[in-house]
Amino acid sequence: MSSPFSTVIESAQTDASLTLNHTCIRVKDPKVSVPFYTEKLGMTLLGQKDFPDMKFSLYFLAFPRPDFPKNSEGKVEVFSMPGVLELTHNWGTESDPEFSVSNGNTEPHRGYGHVCLTTKDIDACCAVFESKDVTFKKRLVDGRQKDIAFILDPDGYWIEVCGYKYDQLDANTHDLRLNHTMLRIKDPAKSLPFYENVLGMRVLEKSVHENGKFTLYFLAYGALKAGEQKRSTQGLLELTHNWGTESDPDFAYHNGNDAPQGYGHVCISLDDPEAMCKEIEAKYGDDIKWAPKYNQGKMKGLAFIRDPDNYSIEIVPRALQL
């Protein structure tokens, strides 16, 4: 069956302000997870937002950069840039010895795969992680792929580590970027039209792996800038298709929001999300699953939309403040 999004109705989203802003994962204990990301990985805590009525807190992190966008008051505009990680803590989980998140990589709850960090010098970067007692799922010397590693955060989420080419070493050798987020998809013939035609992303690269029987699709907003490499940028989405899943009517990936919970969503931001949501609704009608529609949930000024695999995508204004 073809995708309802295969045919572009008028035009796909082309707003130049569109950004793949952040990835949200749930954590058991922020007193453990936040120091892991700041002290061991070197990220900066951009801000924290507490919601006492709903009993949860959000922590927003990013790798340091000299050009963090700031508003007129000098505050970082967290939602106007790519490469942000959101940690969600539901109060009380840290005190429950039986609680654990689903990392998305364990059967029967596979779906979300990982976020990926990229660096100019992967050998030096991994050596730093070793010195800080970071747990490795895969070291560079393990397996066939000698140019990537995987580390684990305190909740068991996988974090890929890759290198990118550079002309020469400089003072910022361990320059890390939050490069991409990986999600497994059942059927690219349905998922790709959704991300391209409904959300306005574009496929930068398709990588076919016949030996492993899978295909990778890397998507982003806009083209790479002159001299920019896929691995040296931020705000990419990697969709992984394991061949054959599209032919199994009973097959479905775990979306991270059904029990057991773990992965939450990716978030796109733009200047006028309300206009975008109205346009999507007008073009695609009941083919779109909202949860909730723009400005109709407990948290105002945003919306959540579901992709063909039932993963959530948040849509927010770039000017949103913590």
Score class of each variant (00 low, 15 high):
Ser3Tyr: 09
Pro4Phe: 02
Pro4Asn: 04
Thr7Cys: 14
Ile9Asn: 10
Ala12Met: 15
Ala12Pro: 14
Gln13His: 12
Ala16Ser: 12
Ser17Lys: 01
Leu20Pro: 12
Leu20His: 10
Asn21Met: 12
His22Glu: 14
His22Val: 07
His22Asp: 12
Thr23Glu: 15
Cys24Ile: 06
Cys24Arg: 09
Val27Ile: 11
Lys28Ala: 10
Pro30Val: 01
Glu39Pro: 05
Lys40Tyr: 04
Gly42Asn: 04
Leu46Asn: 13
Gly47Ile: 03
Gly47Ala: 03
Lys55Gly: 11
Phe56Glu: 14
Leu58Asn: 12
Phe63Leu: 02
Lys75Tyr: 13
Ser80Cys: 08
Gly83Asp: 11
Gly83Tyr: 03
Leu87Thr: 04
Asn90Thr: 13
Asn90Gly: 10
Glu94Asp: 14
His109Gln: 15
Gly111Trp: 00
Val115Tyr: 06
Asp123His: 01
Ala127Ser: 04
Lys137Cys: 10
Arg144Ile: 11
Asp147Gln: 12
Phe150Ile: 07
Pro154Trp: 01
Gly163Ile: 00
Ala171Ile: 00
Ile185Lys: 04
Pro193Ala: 05
Glu196Leu: 13
Glu196Pro: 11
Leu204Pro: 05
His209Arg: 10
Asn211Val: 14
Gly212Arg: 09
Tyr217Ile: 09
Tyr217Asp: 11
Ala220Asp: 13
Tyr221Arg: 07
Lys225Arg: 15
Leu236Ala: 08
Glu238Phe: 03
Thr240Lys: 02
Pro249Gln: 08
Asn257Ala: 13
Ala259Gln: 15
Gln261Thr: 11
Lys278Thr: 05
Glu281Cys: 08
Glu281Arg: 05
Ile288Lys: 05
Ala291Phe: 13
Gln296His: 11
Lys298Thr: 13
Met299Ile: 15
Gly301Phe: 06
Gly301Ile: 03
Pro308Arg: 06
Ile313Thr: 07
Val316Phe: 12
Pro317Gln: 12
Leu322Trp: 04
